[in-house]
Design a protein around this nucleic acid. Structure first.
Length: 304
DNA sequence: AACCACATCAACCGCGAGGCT
DNA sequence: GAGCCTCGCGGTTGATGTGGT
């Protein structure tokens, strides 16, 4: 697939599909000189490709850590979730999928997910609240499970699932009435992956340094404890904790560690302030006084 | 078998950000 | 500050694969 015909541009540089020999030259160069300085590559190797093309070929195809094969179900779900939050920021999404490239995810989205989501999910539907937690999962029986974080604080925020307060108590209406389909089953799952769903783009960007690998599904309380003031864990990885520390003007170091400071793996101390962490994350949780009641019907607008 | 329409995905293009002079 | 260069990103293109008729 792709382009195979070899085209020569005006400046004598080749275009189109890469040959095995070109790949070999590029790989050898990167092995010797490392990534970067792409424009020098052609000069040093005689490869008749522009630096931009070399970088693209390396990043999207020749890198040793590229993951081959189909996108898994888990990966697809994560792509869908992150796209809801971030929009078409493919590089950012790819950064959370090891071995996948932005180009690959973009292609996958355009050729598969977007179509599937459009086909299966009309822009609005009504669901019933059957429980109150910080996350609501809409699971269409027999359809593709599209999880949605819904919380009042997200109203009006771009890229977030929006709640229409005017129809909060309306009867169930829309495409699921009278067409043979069952009423959507509403489930609630308390998982780290669902936890991230309700964030706006801005909120989410603050979360990207969080080391989610330290959390397992079903272990969301660990994160909640951290946010609510339990400083016993080493949940915050250095980039985020340092950010918080610096924000508080209280830069920690091994020589100035104080009581309550937490060491990281490198024996450096990050005396992160959980109050600040709470400031950062607390707005993302559903407040107990939000006014939602079990049994309420709500309309959810799925924005693209 | 031949043709056509659509899907896939590698690669190209334009643009903006950031660094350097 | 202006101009140039490099890099990275997102949108788009187009050759090829695939399935239907």
């Amino acid at each position: 697939m792709g382009r195979s015909s070899r085209i020569s541009s005006k400046d004598g540089l080749a275009k189109g599909a890469w040959s095995a020999l070109e790949d070999e030259i590029l790989v050898d160069y990167v092995k010797t000189h490392g990534e970067g300085k792409w424009s020098n590559l052609a000069k040093h190797t005689g490869l008749k490709r522009c630096g931009k093309s070399c970088r693209l070929r390396w990043m999207n195809y020749l890198r040793p850590d590229i993951k081959r094969g189909n996108i898994s179900g888990d990966e697809e779900e994560l792509i869908m979730r992150m796209h809801k939050l971030l929009g078409n920021r493919w590089a950012l999404i790819a950064g959370r999928l090891p071995g996948r490239t932005d180009n690959e995810i973009k292609n996958y989205w355009n050729s598969y997910i977007a179509k599937k989501a459009k086909d299966q999910f009309p822009s609005t539907r009504s669901v019933e609240i059957i429980d109150k937690k910080e996350d609501i999962r809409v699971d269409l029986q027999g359809g593709v499970a599209l999880s949605c974080g819904v919380c009042p604080q997200q109203q009006g925020k771009e890229d977030a699932i929006q709640l229409n307060p005017d129809t909060k108590n309306a009867a169930l209406t829309g495409p699921f009435s009278g067409n043979g389909l069952t009423k959507p089953k509403l489930e609630l799952e308390n998982t780290p992956t669902n936890f991230i769903l309700g964030f706006s783009s801005e909120d989410f960007s603050n979360m990207l340094d969080y080391d989610f690998a330290k959390l397992n599904d079903g272990n969301i309380n660990e994160l909640k404890n951290a946010i609510e003031g339990d400083s016993s864990g080493t949940l915050l990885n250095p980039p985020l904790s340092q950010e918080i520390t610096e924000k508080n003007g209280d830069l920690g170091s091994s020589s100035s560690a104080a009581e309550g400071d937490q060491p990281n793996n490198n024996n450096n101390y990050y005396n992160y302030n959980m109050v600040s962490a709470a400031d950062l994350f607390q707005p993302l949780f559903l407040d107990s006084n939000d006014g939602w009641q079990v049994g309420d019907d709500i309309d959810i607008l799925f924005s693209n």
